[in-house]
Design a protein around this nucleic acid. Structure first.
Lengths: 310, 310
DNA sequence: ATCGATCATGCACCTATTGTGCAGGGTAAT
DNA sequence: ATTACCCTGCACAATAGGTGCATGATCGAT
């Protein structure tokens, strides 16, 4: 309901380049350029200025973008209230999420919504957390399930988003089946400090979580291998290349020669899984229902995995 | 910046019929019908319901319209703040007003703005007060100069408008040059109670003002003739058909056989001239400047007429 | 310095949204 | 019953808004 060109401007404010804005919004760079020019024309404001080979926001542009946050929130809020008051059903619903955990939560959510709301067109986009926030701003998605990281999570008071903690997913340790500790049910990070560790590439989403867990107990792990997918982590461990961390939500599904141990002791690393929506839209019936479904599913998976693997 | 279809819905909420909405917005009835249908589709809300041979808003529709008031105000406010912060100039400015008084204020305003802002495209629409408010909602105009009437004026707390009193324009009495009181400078309404009065048609904008003036002093005037334009009033008086009221801002410009007397006594009827804008837009530099110009002009005309006619 | 990479923008072209005018159908008033 | 009014669907037209490619401009690397 808010002019699409203002949304585009807001996306640009985050991306900084026309090209990235185009990629995120789904338009071509020419279209974004034309949109922003048109926006300046109708508003009679100079919002962009050339800056090297790119463009940047003027002071007026930054002012407008910052001021548009409550405007968007107000619209979302109104829309949500009207939907609830009128018991209406919306036509499209965009979901975004990152990592297998999000995928395991989003897929059932989408399936449930499809069956309970046959008319609703549900679209799921897999994207990293930071990109999920961008997609929320770009209004490509309406709800994101992400793993909260200190780096790319936004404060409770961010005027653009509202977040709800879905669950704290504990990290387990996975070790080869022939490891001395394999018969144990639990282990501490200190016990495994000297092991060769399998982690993600430095700078990736989970790497900071990994290092944070070890700095909490004051040891520096030896990083032997790097893997991106949990599948790869598990395979590496199964091949005896080292040990690794695995979120409890990530399934082991009967991998050969791999044992999952719960972590005890001073540091019990967890990853926090949160749902994020555009501020104001949290009251929307569809989002409320989604949050409920997510919560139920998350808890069920969590307890099921607890019984299954340990 | 707010979707045009929502604006159309808001206009419809005031008009009640598609046809009137079309007339007010400048679209064809088909276009309005299509717009509202499209709006319902994208929002997934049922906003309209058939009602006899027309349509009416559903509860959801009324809810949405009412809730959109602060949204519009917020946008106007943001826009105004950005214009001021960025020292920007807008491209289009719509003015509306009613009656010769407004015309005498609006014309100089438009002329001044045209000279000080050569790039600004100023458009003036002459319309009755009630219609001016409609035009403000329809975003056809940005500033209206109207004569405040108890019937069609809106409270200070109306979420859609903000109003500033420009001036209180006293009503004078005009009598034929050969009238016994013609040599006087002032008169009271009581003295003229038995005269044949010339007024506007019952129900018209000024008629309520006319009756209010006389009920204040407890007499019931005899209405002899009705006229719409001030010109006609003056001509009737000049022809000796009766006496009438004339706002001080309305010029006599040397009419034959007509004398203007100030009204003294208990009841000194005035018409209040106010400027109305969409709520939030009052801080806009252009509107601030316009209000200043209006104020200066109004005061100047008022004092000039005082010296000239009496 | 030269070259290549990166970005934004203008242009030609195309699509599809969105407008108009008119005909039709349903409903209230005469 | 007839008339008048109001909304809507349809054929058609205008135009806003999209893409893709070529161009120009700037920065970094060779």
């Amino acid at each position: 309901m808010i002019d699409a060109r203002l949304i585009t401007l807001r996306v640009f404010a985050r991306c900084g380049t026309i090209g990235a804005t185009a990629e995120l919004t789904g338009y071509s760079p020419s279209a974004v350029s034309a949109q922003l020019r048109e926006l300046q024309r109708v508003l009679g404001m100079q919002l962009l200025a050339k800056d090297g080979r790119g463009v940047r926001l003027t002071a007026t542009g930054r002012f407008l973008v910052a001021g548009s946050d409550p405007l968007i929130a107000q619209w979302e809020s109104l829309r949500a209230a009207a939907m609830e008051a009128g018991d209406q059903v919306q036509a499209h619903f965009g979901l975004g999420g990152f990592s297998s955990a999000a995928a395991h939560l989003l897929a059932p959510l989408a399936a449930t919504l499809r069956s309970t709301h046959p008319l609703l067109e549900v679209q799921v986009l897999e994207a990293e957390p930071a990109r999920c926030f961008d997609l929320l701003i770009a209004e490509r998605i309406d709800l994101a399930v992400i793993v909260a990281m200190q780096s790319d999570t936004y404060g409770e008071d961010d005027p653009r988003f509202e977040q709800r903690v879905l669950l704290d997913d504990p990290l387990d340790v996975i070790i080869p089946g022939d490891h001395p500790l394999a018969s144990r049910q639990t282990a501490t990070l200190e016990e495994l400090a000297s092991e060769p560790w399998i982690t993600e590439a430095a700078g990736s989403a989970y790497h900071s979580l990994f290092t944070a867990a070890f700095t909490a107990v004051g040891v520096t792990p030896r990083i032997a291998h790097e893997a991106v997918e949990w599948e790869t982590h598990i395979a590496f461990v199964g091949a005896g290349l080292g040990v690794g961390l695995l979120p409890r939500l990530a399934p082991l599904h009967g991998a050969e020669n791999v044992v999952r141990l719960r972590i005890t002791g001073r540091a019990k690393p967890t990853r926090r899984i949160v749902a994020a929506v555009r501020r104001g839209s949290i009251a929307s019936p569809l989002i409320q229902e989604s949050l409920r479904i997510l919560q139920v599913n998350a808890n069920r998976i969590l307890t099921a995995r607890l019984e299954e693997d340990l």
